[in-house]
């Protein structure tokens, strides 16, 4: 199965959100099922990044790359990065992969690599 991360598009004003919210940030439309789910694009630019060396208990690695990426449609997401020498503004492309193993569950999310 092809996995995707979804954005949420307001049916009334078309504003796209990520992550999920229940009331539109732009027009405050208030009702059930006001949003269409839209798969997020995978390509974007790296806005900022870090390598974390002191990780929460579940992450048994020496360091973990994280970044904020501005996707092609202008929406921003946080994700893991696997890039040796990242540069601000570089082109990246994300894959949907396991980002965390939580007991018996796999959590999927964006892992960005150099485009």
């Amino acid at each position: 199965m092809e996995r995707e991360i979804f954005g949420y598009k307001c049916q009334k004003c078309g504003t796209l959100h990520y992550p999920f919210r229940m009331v539109c940030k732009n027009c405050r439309a208030n009702g059930y099922f006001e949003f269409d789910t839209v798969p997020l694009p995978h390509a974007g630019k790296l806005l900022t990044f870090t390598f974390i060396h002191n990780l929460p208990a579940e992450f048994e690695v020496a360091r973990l790359g994280l970044g904020i990426v501005e996707l092609e449609n202008g929406l921003r997401v946080t994700g893991q990065i696997q890039i040796d020498d990242p540069k601000l503004g570089m082109d990246v492309v994300g894959a949907i992969e396991v980002v965390k193993r939580d007991a018996y569950d796999n959590r999927y999310g964006f892992v960005f690599r150099a485009a």
Binding site: Y18, P19, T48, F49, T50, I52, L55, P56
Partner: peptide, 30 residues
């Protein structure tokens, strides 16, 4: 570290391993 990280967004941040120092670091770089 994990306990403090639970104040981040559960689906859009926490699952990626985001910590508070991680947020501060990305902010500092900018």
């Amino acid at each position: 570290t994990d306990f403090v990280a639970t104040l981040t967004h559960p689906m859009a941040e926490y699952i990626y391993g985001v910590t508070l120092p991680g947020h501060a670091a990305m902010f500092t770089r900018l």
